[in-house]
Design a protein around this nucleic acid. Structure first.
Lengths: 206, 206, 206, 206
DNA sequence: CATGAATGAGTATTCATTCAT
DNA sequence: AATGAATGAATACTCATTCAT
């Protein structure tokens, strides 16, 4: 804002981000298999050759998209240090964050889904995407473990598989085409009951 | 060599099935985006033109694969009328069936996953694949509902979202690359506890 | 020869030869560096894709051209068993053959020249082209050696380098743009004298 | 930083020479057909745009290389006024010079070869390169003529074609990949005998 | 039924060149 | 002088599909 820096770097980095955005949008529309360099260039409003100037190969492009996803995820999980919250509150935040994604960033979810699929046979993608999922599972397992310790969740709860269960439920829900917000609330409620400690009287929580 | 036996029809249907099998195998290997008519023809051992004689377009080919998946699923769920079993037993059967798929028919899972992805933007595929998933969810919801009625599952269990939860957990597990059989058993155990009625003493259940 | 076979093979082989011819012509016109698959296809009168059907890659195309050159050369050197001729006569035949090439198949020479150049860094081409040149040198050395033995050529003639000299003179002459037939005759005459046995009276030699 | 020294002109000319050198090196490595402006710029350590500032088009670049070759050749032939030497000595010098080129400046030979090839269809190159070869032939013819006059070479030697023969032998030798120094010596010996006056007793000549 | 050959419409990538700074 | 960014025109190669036999 102040004295604009020589913005040489910025300009180039901006372009790369614009390309990443366009690529994501196109992946959502046509899937990874329908992704064409020409279309991306068109959407960004540049020549194909210019696209290749910034992102030399299609492989690099997939890398760029992956990186962009990583940034997206990291942003969401790092922005909020919730260590002072109770496990139950933290779980609610997870439910809320995922709902945000479902309503506002459905495309991020779609792109991640495509990347996961592609990661099945593309080691480069796999090595970039799986850690992201693993980190999510670990964070969820942390929450559940803490809740088990402080008695708000079941005493016989096994954190890792339970995390898998919660996340699987959320992601699976995201795949169901005609799901409503009400459905999402019902799912969250069910998940709360599934991990809740039955011996503790429900407070007015959430 | 002799006079051609009358099962010309069968022969043609055999070809189609061989093509479907080859297509599935190739989808597993290279993904939907790497699926080439030529490769399929090669694997079946026929000419590309011959392939197009049996399956006129690539769209039809995707349809054939989808159909083949449907058959596969129907086979598994219809072969065993389990109405005489207890809900808990039926749930165990679901766990076992999915484990079978994980160990013996991982490719079916992979193809389904690809089809689901493609279904996101290909209505034809979506209309064929989503009912399969919906049917699975309903079946699971039935089991859970029955278990709630007979007191073996939680009284506050909401069948539909709970079904989503169980299935999401299973499918999500299938996506984790380095998962072991032990991990699967831990997941199933957690799911059992998640739906179990806490007021009922656990019997010797597996 | 008799009843034309289903000529499936023939047809395909014809195409390949037509492609080779077109490629050679284009190499003469634009050089190896100006050789474009599109141009070849156009000249043959087929689609580029059809060209690639018959000759899958440009490397294969260069291989085809090389092979075609080999055939051309072999044809010329094998068609005429000249073992019954005197060395002097055989040398004259070489002079005549090269003159033929200069006047009637200048393109063969041009293509060979391009291949030799490319062979400098393309091992595949080198391995195909160098033996052809080596064979020519050996044949020439044989002639010269025989002439030395029978006294028609210099007694102190060293066959291998002398062969190099004769061939170098011919090829170098082919490179001179504005050379006339008279110049060629002068060159041949000089070569005759260069290898001749000075102690033998010249007969009616051409 | 300080006041730019006055040799701006020189600096620019230096750049051009550096470009010419880089271009030659790359022609040797990848051939004329593999010559890329980007590669040249990289090797010189400048931007492509800067390269185009100094040498506006690729055609100009080829011209620059050609010019550089001309300089190279002129340097070699003008540096040594050998008019006081005997024809036999002058011939030996030619043999020696070429050997130098074979061992120390093989790249110059390679570039010349590429230029000759390109000259076949590029008039600009042809008009620049052929005079160089012509001059070489003339110089060689001069030597041979002088030797014929003073009786050291054959009396029936025809200078022009004989020059063609000697030069062709040398150049052809340069093209043979696996040639050794011994082979070169044998070739030179053979050339000496081919032009020598048979009626003159051989002195201790090398 | 089967196949060899053919093809139109792409597809990523390359390259010499230009331009604003 | 120098450079980062941009671009039009190619370029080899691909793929689903068609057709005559």
């Amino acid at each position: 804002m102040a004295h604009t820096p020589p913005h040489k770097r910025e300009s180039s980095e901006d372009r790369r981000q614009a390309i990443a955005r366009a690529a994501c949008a196109l992946i959502v529309e046509k899937g990874m298999e329908g992704l064409r360099t020409r279309d991306i260039a068109d959407r960004v409003g540049i020549n194909v050759a210019t696209l290749h100037y910034h992102v030399p190969t299609k492989e690099a492009l997939v890398g760029l998209v992956t990186e962009s996803m990583r940034t997206e995820f990291r942003a969401q999980s790092q922005l909020r240090p919730r260590d002072h919250l109770t496990p139950r509150e933290r779980l609610e935040h997870e439910f809320f964050d995922f709902h945000e994604m479902l309503t506002r960033k459905l495309e991020v979810l779609a792109v991640m889904s495509e990347l996961l699929e592609r990661g099945r046979r593309d080691p480069t993608v796999r090595d970039a995407v799986q850690p992201m999922m693993a980190r999510w599972r670990e964070m969820m397992a942390d929450i559940l473990r803490a809740g088990r310790e402080d008695g708000s969740f079941r005493a016989d709860l096994d954190p890792e598989p339970a995390a898998q269960m919660v996340i699987g439920a959320l992601v699976g829900f995201g795949r169901v085409a005609d799901a409503s917000s009400t459905d999402y609330e019902r799912l969250c409620a069910e998940l709360r009951r599934a991990v809740a400690n039955p011996n503790v009287a429900k407070d007015t929580a959430q």
